[in-house]
Design a protein around this nucleic acid. Structure first.
Lengths: 214, 214
DNA sequence: AAAAATCTTGACCAATCGGTCAAGATATAA
DNA sequence: TTATATCTTGACCGATTGGTCAAGATTTTT
């Protein structure tokens, strides 16, 4: 993830730079999530961050450089959640933990999910290398793990790939389509209780769906 | 869906208008799917339709008017697929048919799904009234139907709403995230056989997940 | 206190945006 | 054939785009 060095002589960012970059990245995630890369404008991001546009371009030379930093952050968070799907547990615990982690991520960081969705819809012009390397390797290793579960008779015979897609699709839907879900919920976002119920339903249907009785 | 009347004295569009509007709408769906409403430009749409921009604006006065026509068409197709989830069948047949219809739609009209996804991510500035009326009523009636199945013990006790979301999310994922799926498939779109396998897996996991043994 | 590094910002740039217009080309109706 | 309606398009409009720049303000280092 090549980011140019902007640190001073002592090799660290100033407090001012730290704070301003943080504010810009926060505003940028909002705007990129809502409008996509092409639809987002640097002036809109600057306005939302509360600084002049020229100041934004002092910290991030181009819109694309800013976008890459946003994407990098999102991918890091995605990988953290991904690590919860690990070998050590039994299928039920492992998958339940992963679904929970992904659902929690959709609630705590819906903007990241939306930026990701926009990027994929556009054909992943920026993160194609992540898809072809990090994501591909992660997916292959998890597919192998799930296939082992199938071979050992621990879960029903499903194609691991399509199970993973179902988990991704369902959990991310609660972030990407949050507005539609809220509209169908009398215009209000899901309450904590509703969210828990959604998590429970999603987990139960998927686990039962692969032959693990809840 | 208020569209202004542009028909001649005898009350019908000319063949020229028919053909040109069709070409423009086709190009517009592509561009809106890829770039969203804000990111799409009328000149890009015109270029893809093979006509000068001024000619596009002769047929569609504004970008928003064109966008509304595209959205209208997509919603019509969506409703057709939705009608396959009907009362007459048993839960297994009804849900299997609906999942199949939605999967087929993701394959035959992926662009429409992407435009829809973009619109929702942006907060549905254009189709909010569809969500609040047509979609809300459709969803309520189907929720009631599924709840009856639960009460009659035909399927496991799930909240119908979250079951519907899972079906929408999973099936539409194959359109909206088609690029990611292709990348994880060695860069090639799913073959017919793979698509059938995906459909089979999705249907089986969901049906088994709500207690209907395949 | 002086020097150096860092940060701020209004003014500006060429390119592109959505959209208009008028003049001419083409098709249809009388 | 003539008249009318429809269609086509280059040129153009003010506004906004991503990005630059220079001059000054502020902070940090010496």
């Amino acid at each position: 993830m090549g980011t140019q060095d902007v640190s001073g002589k002592n090799g660290q960012k100033t407090a001012i730079r730290e704070e301003n970059e943080r504010a810009i990245l926060e505003a940028a995630e909002e705007v990129f999530a809502e409008y996509g890369f092409s639809g987002a404008t640097t002036s809109r991001i600057a306005r939302r961050a509360g600084i002049p546009k020229a100041n934004l371009h002092y910290y991030f030379a181009t819109k694309e450089a800013l976008y890459r930093r946003v994407i990098d952050n999102i991918f890091t968070v995605w990988l953290e959640a991904a690590s919860s799907l690990n070998e050590s547990d039994h299928p039920r615990q492992a998958l339940a933990a992963y679904i929970q982690a992904k659902m929690d991520l959709s609630r705590s960081r819906p903007l990241g999910s939306k930026v990701w969705a926009n990027e994929i819809i556009q054909g992943a012009p920026v993160i194609q290398d992540y898809l072809e390397n990090t994501l591909r390797e992660w997916t292959a290793s998890r597919e192998a793990m799930i296939r082992r579960w199938v071979d050992e008779g621990k879960i029903a015979p499903v194609n691991p790939r399509y199970l993973l897609y179902m988990i991704w699709a369902t959990t991310q839907h609660y972030a990407d389509f949050g507005h539609q879900i809220a509209t169908l919920n009398d215009g209000r976002a899901l309450t904590d209780a509703q969210w828990e119920e959604a998590k429970k339903n999603v987990t139960e249907i998927i686990l039962r769906g692969i032959g693990i009785s809840a």
